[in-house]
Each structure stands twice: as structure tokens, then as C-alpha cells.
Design a protein around this nucleic acid. Structure first.
Lengths: 215, 215
DNA sequence: ACATAATAGTTGCAAATGCAACAAATAGCT
DNA sequence: AGCTATTTGTTGCATTTGCAACTATTATGT
């Protein structure tokens, strides 16, 4: 538990002491379970597992707004439409989530916990990382064509591992929900790219053959 | 200068003292000027003015990745493609930018400045706000049709002011760069929406006539 | 090992969007 | 006030993408 990044450099005794300050609650969910009843000021931190923020719109489209891994955060704060559209938070694995009160976290603590400032620094690191991920997402979605969305996405995955041989961490169906395009159109484009020799692919395994410096 | 949000609740004397710690440099730019030579670990904070992060891709598309107002932040950190594509940072007004070294900001200061933790708390607030803005952006770009992108965008602007009568803070040409769609296609769609009685619009002035609870 | 569900892959056709090439209106400048 | 540049608005046509309705393949559970 104390291996959650938000508690980096804080001792276990301190942690328990602090968790009172901002009313931290840990809750466990099983695979496939939906997380609901999140209060608006509450922040969720993924202690373990994976969750996805999904929007279902009125014409039946499913959109993966975010996939959040360990140490990632989420909260109503981040989706302006969470009340309007149908946004669901789904656990893809058995997951443990810590909910904390955002205001208590950020404001100076009355009890003056000595490690509160360490906590805030850790939080800054987590939120910064979230910003970077969101920026990457914007970069993908801002591409004008399906092909460029795919290439931008492939390049990012490839950059992480340093290999041209990538495995997509989604089902291809989910990938289309993530890229916000039609699944069949996406598969058709991948087929074209295969035919043009830009990639090699079979299901979730993709090998980049195009010149990455070009994109 | 001390009205920059990052220095909230820190006295002027303290500020000057601290600015040494993380090598803060303030620089002024005139309208239309491009900001370049940003070091990779450096973070820009908009003290005054407005800047836009623009990507020009190989087939001549212009994309507004972000528009950053006062107290907003930017940095290489946030664009994975800044080295690859042609990303420019342009001042839309006369602007003052403070550059700081991100690592010095986040790590514990050797001089143990007493207000360093206040600074980090302020930074957390700024970065959180950035995350929220980016999430909103993702929500717009994730819409599958041009019409829905427009509606989502209009709703957000409308939500800020609480009015159905909005003025788009871009030229319509820039708006299309922001929504990542073709300008003429966007204008055509707005025309259709006018004809269907969903909006009323003339240039940058748009009045929402549709039922906002529906979207 | 079999049945069933989930995922991957394909294709024709319709609809949406991009592209190009304009005209009209507005803003900025001297 | 008049000229110029920028922005806004329009439209025909080509291309891309979405939709629907399939088949094929791979996982999953008993």
C-alpha cells in the first residue's frame, strides 16, 4: 500500500496519521465493476489495477476518454460532461482505489502534518504526468486523417519501448474507441497500410516499417 | 509581477530570494513573436499575454494544440512531437514569460527556502487547471462529427459565462484549426445548423437555440 | 472438446468531410 | 476616404469515413 507513489518518502506511521486528515478511503473493486457515486470534490487514485473512463453518447458511440493505470488519478473535476452524457468508470481488472478529498489535500492542514508538503510534491508529480498523457492524447486526436491518427499512436507506443515491434494494449475494437473512429474504417486503413508496405500487422501485433522520422 | 498565481501567498522579498534557487528568468515578447530555444527541462509560465502552441504538419495543416492565457504553463515536456513536427509557440499579444527549471522547482531546495512548499502547492493548482483544460479539449476532439465538435465547444464557452449568447475568442479560421477540421466544412455545418434553427450566428457571434440539456 | 461469446477482418453503399477556387464582407493602414 | 489584406461565406467535386451486414478467427467456460 505504501508503494503508492503519492506516499513516496513518507513513513507508514505518518501515512496512517495523514489519511485521517483528508478522509482517505480505500475501496476494492472486482473486474468489470463500475465505480459510481463519486462526490464532486473527490479524487480517485488507482492504487492497483486499471480503470477506464468511458463515454456512451446518444447515438451509441463508445469513447474511451482515458485509460488509467496504477498511480493515475481521476475525478469528476476532469470531465465537464460527467453529469450530462453517460460517463462510466469501469475497472478492467480487480482494482483498489483510494478516494481522497481534493481540498483537504491541497490546502494547508490544520494539524500541520510534517509530511504534508511531501505529499503535495508527490501529487504535483502525478498530476504533471496526467497532463503529459492528456497532451499526447490531444496530439493523436488532433490528427486530421485516420491514417495519421494510427501513425501518431503507433509512434507513441513505439517510443515507450524503443522498438518497432509493438503490441497494442487494447483490443482493436477498443483502439477504435480510443482513436474515436469507426472500427471497420480503422481496420480498412490498417489493411491499406499493410498493402502499401507501411506496416506489418496481425491482430494486436504491429510492426512499423515506415520511416518514423517522417512523422 | 507578484500577482502571478505561482507566487500567491509569498512575499516579494521571498520571491526574489527564491527566483535564484530555480534560475527563473523573465523574458518579454512582442505581439506575433515566436518563442524558441526552450530547453527541455524548462517550464514557461505566462505572466501576461497569450500564447498559442501551433503545429504545422507536412501537408500544410495548421493545428492549434493549445491556447494559453495568463498563469498557464507550457514546456517541451508537454509535446512529445516538438522535435519531430514543426511546433511553434507564438505570442498573440505582447507577453511576458517566466522560464523556470522544472527539476529545481519540484525537488527539495538545498537552501531550504521556507516558502518553497507554498510554491509547490501553487504549482499543483496551476498544473491541475491545465489538466482540466486538456480534458475538455479531449472531450471536444473525441466527438465523432463536426456538428458535435461545434456543439461541445459552444456548450463549454456558454458554460463559462452562463449565457447562450457567445462570442468565439478565435477567428473562425482559427476555430477550425482548434477543432481540427476544414474551415469551409465547418462553415457549411454552421450554415446547416442555422437553417435547422439550432443556432443563430454571424461571424464570431453565436446564439445557442438548441436544448443544451440534450448534449 | 465442445459450445458460445468475443474479437478480428471484409465489403458495398451512403453520408460526411476535405479540397479548391471562388465572391463578399470586414478590418487595418496611410 | 480609399486601398489592401484578412476574414467570412459559398459551392461543386473528390475522397474519406461511417454504417450495416456479413464471415472468419480466437478466447473462454464447463
Amino acid at each position: 500500500m505504501s508503494d503508492t507513489r503519492i506516499f513516496d518518502n513518507i513513513t507508514d506511521e505518518e501515512i496512517n496519521q495523514m489519511k485521517n486528515c483528508f478522509k482517505a478511503v480505500n475501496r476494492k473493486y472486482i473486474e468489470g465493476e463500475t465505480i459510481n457515486n463519486i462526490e464532486s470534490g473527490s479524487l480517485g487514485i488507482v492504487v492497483s489495477g486499471v480503470v477506464e473512463i468511458i463515454r456512451f453518447d446518444f447515438d451509441g458511440n463508445r469513447t474511451i476518454l482515458e485509460r488509467i493505470n496504477e498511480n493515475g488519478i481521476f475525478g469528476k473535476l476532469f470531465f465537464s460532461q460527467i453529469d450530462e452524457g453517460d460517463v462510466e468508470i469501469i475497472c478492467l481488472d480487480d482494482s483498489e482505489i483510494m478516494f481522497i478529498d481534493y481540498d483537504h489535500l491541497t490546502k494547508q492542514c490544520h494539524n500541520a502534518c510534517s509530511h504534508h508538503s511531501t505529499l503535495i510534491r508527490n501529487m504535483l508529480s502525478i498530476v504533471s504526468e496526467k497532463s503529459i498523457k492528456l497532451s499526447n492524447r490531444v496530439e493523436i486526436l488532433s490528427q486530421r486523417t485516420l491514417r495519421k491518427k494510427l501513425i501518431t499512436y503507433f509512434n507513441m507506443i513505439s517510443k515507450e519501448t524503443g522498438k518497432k515491434n509493438i503490441v497494442i494494449p487494447f483490443s482493436l475494437s477498443s483502439l477504435s474507441d480510443y482513436l474515436c473512429v469507426d472500427r471497420s474504417a480503422m481496420l480498412r486503413e490498417m489493411k491499406k497500410m499493410r498493402e502499401e508496405g507501411l506496416i506489418d500487422s496481425h491482430a494486436k501485433k504491429v510492426t512499423i516499417l515506415y520511416d518514423q522520422t517522417m512523422f
